[in-house]
């Protein structure tokens, strides 16, 4: 458990820094690489104890602090995704690059889609083209960030000898 915290701390900081530095111009809009979403997925797939709930909650709070979404929104979304991932863990071969790319893409699109709820809740109505741009943009961005996050996470886990990550 201690090792998992040693891995998670720097990983969270790294992902927050990577996501917080701005964004990339994608499909005419700005998309921040969703490293924190990928980190939540990594935690849900590699951690087994109560620590996964703490890690996902912290990741969600950092995500909400970096964005304009209401505090708790990303905690709920990451938690929901984590629960689904845990239930389907046995069906996923998460060590494979193609799985990571596909998983990242799907999670990115779902998270992008869910962001519309927070956006509407804050009193703004997204245009159809803007919604499509964000969802596709998040799909592409998360498909790229997920394998990277999984790779770094697995390496850190192996370095400190965490059994959870070094499967």
């Amino acid at each position: 458990m201690g090792n998992e915290i040693i891995v998670f701390g720097p990983l969270l900081l790294l992902c927050a820094a990577a996501e917080g530095i701005g964004g990339v111009r994608l499909l005419g809009g700005w998309i921040s690489p969703p490293f924190l979403l990928s980190l939540a997925a990594y935690c849900a797939l590699t951690r087994r104890t109560w620590i996964v709930a703490v890690e996902i909650a912290l990741t969600g709070i950092v995500q909400d602090s970096l964005s304009f979404t209401p505090l708790g929104f990303s905690v709920a979304m990451f938690g929901l995704m984590g629960a689904v991932l845990e239930r389907t863990r046995g069906l996923l071969y998460a060590d494979h690059l193609i799985t990571q790319v596909a998983l990242g893409g799907v999670l990115g699109a779902v998270f992008g889609c869910s962001g519309a709820l927070a956006y509407i809740a804050r009193g703004a109505m997204p245009s159809f083209s803007a919604a499509i741009r964000v969802i596709i943009g998040m799909f592409i961005a998360a498909a790229v960030t997920t394998p990277v996050t999984f790779w770094i996470g697995a390496h850190l886990d192996r370095m400190v000898g965490s059994h959870a990550g070094a499967r």
């Binding site: 996501e19 917080g20 530095i21 701005g22 964004g23 809009g29 700005w30 998309i31 921040s32 969703p34 924190l36 995500q63 970096l66 964005s67 304009f68 979404t69 992008g112 962001g115 519309a116 927070a118 956006y119 703004a124 997204p126 964000v134 943009g137 998040m138």
Partner: peptide, 14 residues
């Protein structure tokens, strides 16, 4: 300017 909004929905900068 040190960052842009992370969710992709809002047009904000930090």
């Amino acid at each position: 300017v040190i960052g842009r909004e992370a969710s992709g929905w809002w047009s904000t900068v930090r």
